[in-house]
Design a protein around this nucleic acid. Structure first.
Lengths: 237, 237
DNA sequence: TACTGTGAACCAATTCACAGCC
DNA sequence: GGCTGTGAATTGGTTCACAGTA
């Protein structure tokens, strides 16, 4: 996948107890979401087959993924929804609280600040920072936008370990440097540029226009009949 | 892993001329962006080594990726920035115009509607649609927000082939069904739910809270010394 | 000489298929 | 009987290392 996100650091060759493959880690949140939905619908038990459908993967992959966490199912029966949900949440680390700072309060930063999907999952946005003096002091929900100069003290004050960068591309590296210098070790980067960080710091990037470009590539292929004129139905959806 | 997106349809076993691996496709937009940056800085020629650094990958991967498109470099010299840029843009399909509709004009939908990164790359947002009567009629840039009932006619009128869903989760499937019924074959889904589509339709999903959860997982690992107490420097950044 | 393009080797992820258990 | 958990097989992707060439 694609995402194919790049994960470079982290001891790859360690044969220790807990070596959950990166591809599995990326799917755990999806399983968690599916389990929450099932739970909301009053479903108490599920099978790998049903859960896989709810998560949009195949059941073999789901079982293999879950097997990396432990044996939380019952052969012949399936999985207890609430129990499995808790185990995955714990594995991801959602049973604790993660203070987050958002740097760059443009349209996207505002959208993220208001996004309920964060707060409902243990992420607490504790500070909003922007370089534009015209924005500083504005309220957004319960938070006031702070000047960029306050970044360092805010990180320390709120013990922030995850930073979100929603600045223009040209500002992103400098913001990343300042986050890292103050001890932030995880960065979610929405700025359309590559940022360099020292080893031990995790960066995930989301580039909205890249996603559209990937779609455009496939769309172009479909438009020009480059082999089979009709989309062939290989496997059912 | 990218992100590890799932790509299911599309003839996988076709031995035709053009079988570009999905992982490569996902990186082409990154190379394109890096080339544009180099070009903006007045750089006319580059090597796989320099371009790889600008794109945040290693040079062997870059060369292998480019080799799938053809031989656009010169041994002993490198790549012509403008030429390679054009070739990649053409491969992705950015030399043509892609009309896009955005459904769901909440915070995120608005952010996307205003995002300049789309328009600058051949994506033209031709319609904004929302189910909330209170929003309908509002202007956003050059566009008026239209009622959900207008979705079908807008798709036809503007020949839309790419749809962006930024609705709440519960509305996403119904919107997807309507898009697909009118001939949309590529969907970018921001709603935090799995949507089912028939074979031949491409869906890419972006879930902002999932990205944070993946970071949280690694952050948790770093916090509890689970093997090596200090982050080990394996390779330089 | 310096750099690309690519077979070969390696590694990660997915899928298959069935043993093991309730 | 029905479902999980997992070795084995397969597929896809990355990295190595060097032959080929301007």
């Amino acid at each position: 996948m694609s995402d194919a996100h790049d994960r470079d650091s982290g001891e790859p060759g360690q044969g220790s107890a807990r070596g959950i493959p990166e591809a599995t880690v990326a799917r755990l949140p999806i399983y968690l979401r599916a389990l929450t939905t099932l739970s909301d619908h009053g479903i108490a038990t599920t099978s790998s087959e049903d859960l896989a459908i709810a998560a949009g993967v195949n059941s073999a992959k789901l079982r293999k993924d879950l097997s990396h966490l432990g044996s939380y199912g019952t052969r012949g029966v399936g999985y207890d929804v609430a129990y499995l949900r808790y185990q995955i949440a714990r594995e991801i680390g959602l049973t604790q609280d993660w203070p987050v700072v958002i740097v760059g309060i443009g349209n996207l930063g505002q959208a993220l600040a208001n996004y309920s999907g964060f707060s409902s999952r243990g992420f607490r946005i504790v500070a909003l920072v922007d370089a534009d003096p015209a924005l500083v002091g504005d309220r957004l929900g319960a938070l006031k936008i702070q000047p960029l100069a306050a970044l360092e003290s805010l990180i320390t004050e709120h013990r922030v370990s995850i930073g979100v960068i929603t600045t223009p591309a040209q500002a992103a590296q400098s913001v990343a440097d300042r986050l890292v210098a103050r001890g932030v070790t995880s960065i979610l980067n929405f700025a359309p540029t590559v940022i360099a960080v020292p080893d031990g710091v995790d960066v995930r990037k989301v580039d909205l226009s890249i996603e559209l470009q990937i779609l455009a590539f496939h769309e172009q292929r479909k438009a020009s009949g480059h082999g089979s004129p009709e989309p062939v139905a290989v496997e059912s959806a």
